[in-house]
Design a protein around this nucleic acid. Structure first.
Lengths: 190, 190
DNA sequence: CGTTGCGCTGGACACGTGTCCAGATTAGAA
DNA sequence: TTCTAATCTGGACACGTGTCCAGCGCAACG
């Protein structure tokens, strides 16, 4: 029966992802190999490759799962407060699994179809959270700036220029600059 | 004599970098191999590896060279105009070699010592240009926001979410939001 | 005109990636 | 219980990475 077989398959996949996360925590993403994950999951490498398109796909999927298990953003407070809250929520969540965060940045640059799919989903998730926090009527450029700054912070952290723990603190004033309400007339000095 | 021998070495290195750039343009970074670059440079792969620590190092070095050959930022106009100009200058320069841009994003995430060195230099170059454009007395958070948004744009382009040609257009309104002079009293609505 | 030494060569190595497939296992249907 | 089909296995494959090293060749120096 299809539900039974798909149960078997689903269990194998779950075992692989669980093993992948453990392996990632223990040896880091540079030392992780698909074969070591397969061994940890008690499965042959050929089987691993039927479910994991690539190392990058594994990382992207783990990241996506980790991300979507995060609590949704709070809804109270001012606009700026909600956005700060959304950013802090995301960074905190990401900082919980530093090895995963370090793995996913290069992984998402891959060109697999599976990676491309997850990349879009992850980007959309970020965008949706900022959108929700900003509320209606937010300038397009503000949304974009927020997303780009957040992506940039992830990149810098991925490069080791800051730790994932520092991200929240570095991002807070940046977010304040971007999201601060302003009168329409910009004042050019000099 | 050391200047003679170092001339020979310097020529080999130059040949390798030139071959690397040609190869990159012709086959793209995914298909480029160190050995194919070596062959194009008319050099053995062992020799290539004495000068190139890794594929990533090659890309980072090529990017750095490309970047620093760019004309310096203009100095005229208002603050916002100078910053826009600086951003446009960088994006234009980067967009000139799309294959290189695509290659460098993943490359800079590597953990080689040589890559780490170049990563810092490249980051410092971006920062210096924004710094110069902003002038003295710019809020720290504004500089940081600019750098993060720019990095974010590079990342998104590297992921294929926008082309390098689109970068300038997408970035302009974002930069405007970040760099716009504002009165000190933020106005919170709602 | 040797001799010295630096830079280059060729080719082997260990290792990881991702692919493939014939055959063993397993679970559920008849 | 026996059959059937989905799953999984073991192991080979082609390929790229980056390392290593014994030895070759050439240019400059004595």
């Amino acid at each position: 029966m299809s539900s039974a077989t798909s149960t078997r398959q689903a269990e194998t996949v779950e075992r692989l992802f669980a093993a992948g996360l453990e392996e990632l925590r223990e040896v880091g993403h540079e030392a992780l190999t698909i074969r070591s994950v397969a061994a940890r999951a008690g499965v042959s490498s050929a089987t691993a490759y039927t479910y994991l398109a690539s190392r990058s796909h594994l990382f992207a999927e783990l990241f996506w799962r980790h991300l979507t298990e995060a609590p949704g953003p709070a809804t109270g407070g001012s606009r700026a407060e909600r956005v700060q809250e959304a950013v802090r929520g995301l960074t905190t969540r990401i900082a919980e699994e530093p090895a995963l965060a370090a793995a996913v940045t290069p992984a998402l640059l891959g060109s697999d179809a599976d990676v491309a799919r997850l990349r879009l989903r992850i980007g959309a998730e970020f965008a949706a959270r900022f959108e929700a926090a900003l509320g209606d009527g937010a300038e397009e450029a503000v949304r974009e700036a927020l997303l780009l700054a957040f992506s940039g912070a992830l990149l810098q952290a991925g490069m080791g220029l800051m730790t994932y723990d520092e991200m929240a603190d570095r991002l807070a004033p940046v977010v304040a600059v971007i999201v601060r309400e302003r009168r329409i007339e910009p004042v050019e000095m000099e």
